[in-house]
């Protein structure tokens, strides 16, 4: 019996969420009195994989072949399932990234394993089953779910579980290959488009977000500058992306992306229930709005009532002074 954790990379670099999920898997293994094994798929060099040792991973299966260089949902799911069977893993852990969301349901269906998406705490053994909590009804409730199959798949949201170092001693890396049928290659990556200068929104620790209060796309300069100073990603409310002021990929909320950064700064956003559904699990929330009655203040930790066009430039200056820039 063991816990298997799937480790993701971007162009050969382990993702930040990979260290979070490694920490989660290590702590899950401790909780369930068993060992943790990691699986990396794709082309990652040994030095990079060795970094996992700092997070308590002692054994890594390395599925590093040309055919698996880009993401192929079915093939990756087969590799993960094969590795789980080889390692006799009863718990399989993935990050709830876009690839994780694609893989986890396929892996669970292959193994007839109970699947829980977006776990917010460590699993606990409860007799024969294990229990995990997740958010439901778009962040309006928390569900305690029991996973009744002897095998389970758990995904963990980026930023939901901190990456904590705990060196494992030595790291053993074992090549892992499996013969895959052609039918596992039903999809093929043609092109990857990356906004290289941008911090990815789902993984960002700090997010600066703006709404209709900004009046028009031409006013986003101050939002981007604030994000820059903070090393933050930018986001927006739904009407802003609907109007084409910002790309759809920035829209957060019930019908957009759900994020849980450590700091969310909402500027000129009223705080409608559908917006809050996407951001209310942020650790600290700062709201800047000229209307003291804006509903967003009710769930904010810090608030400033006033005009964004006056406050944001002042905030940028204060942050620059704090960081000793400019």
């Amino acid at each position: 019996m063991s816990v298997l954790v799937y480790i993701e990379n971007t162009d050969g670099q382990l993702k930040k969420s990979a260290f979070e999920v490694a920490s989660y898997a290590r702590d899950t293994a401790a909780q369930l009195h068993t060992d943790v094994v990691a699986l990396s798929i794709g082309q990652v060099n040994q030095d990079e994989l060795h970094k996992l040792g700092q997070y308590g991973i002692g054994k890594i299966l390395d599925a590093n072949t040309e055919k698996l260089a880009t993401f192929v949902n079915q093939a990756y799911a087969s590799i993960l399932t094969g590795a789980a069977q080889k390692e006799n893993a009863h718990t399989i852990i993935l990050s709830n990234t876009f690839s994780g969301k694609a893989l986890a349901p396929r892996v669970s269906a292959k193994l007839k394993a109970s699947l829980i998406s977006g776990a917010i705490d460590l699993p606990k053994a409860e007799g024969d089953t294990i229990g995990v909590k997740t958010t439901t009804f778009s962040n309006k409730a928390i569900a305690s779910v029991s996973l009744q199959s002897p095998t389970r798949v758990i995904t963990v949201n980026p930023n939901a579980y901190p990456a904590k170092e705990q060196p494992s001693g030595q790291v053993q890396i074992e090549p892992y290959n499996a013969d895959l049928p052609d039918s596992d290659f039903g999809t093929m990556v043609k092109e990857i488009v990356r906004a290289t200068d941008k911090i990815s929104l789902p993984e960002a620790e700090i997010v600066v977000s703006a709404g209709r209060g900004l009046k028009g796309p031409e006013n986003w300069g101050i939002i981007e500058e604030l994000a820059n100073v903070l090393g933050a990603a930018t986001a927006c409310s739904k009407p802003v992306s609907d109007a084409g002021w910002r790309p759809h990929a920035e829209h957060v909320g019930q019908t957009g992306i759900v994020i849980s950064p450590k700091l969310y700064i909402a500027i000129g956003i009223s705080g409608a229930i559908q917006h809050l559904a996407g951001v209310s699990s942020s650790k600290t929330i700062v709201v800047i709005n000229k209307d003291p009655e804006a509903p967003f203040f009710k769930i904010a930790d810090y608030g400033i009532v006033g005009d964004a066009f006056v406050i944001v430039p002042k905030l940028i200056a204060a942050l620059k002074a704090h960081k000793g820039i400019g």
């Binding site: 971007t10 993702k15 880009t70 993401f71 990234t97 876009f98 690839s99 999809t187 093929m188 990556v189 043609k190 092109e191 990857i192 488009v193 990356r194 906004a195 941008k198 911090i199 990815s200 929104l201 789902p202 993984e203 990929a249």
Partner: peptide, 8 residues
């Protein structure tokens, strides 16, 4: 995908 898109 995180920070972009993949065309498949």
């Amino acid at each position: 995908i995180e920070g972009g898109k993949e065309i498949i």
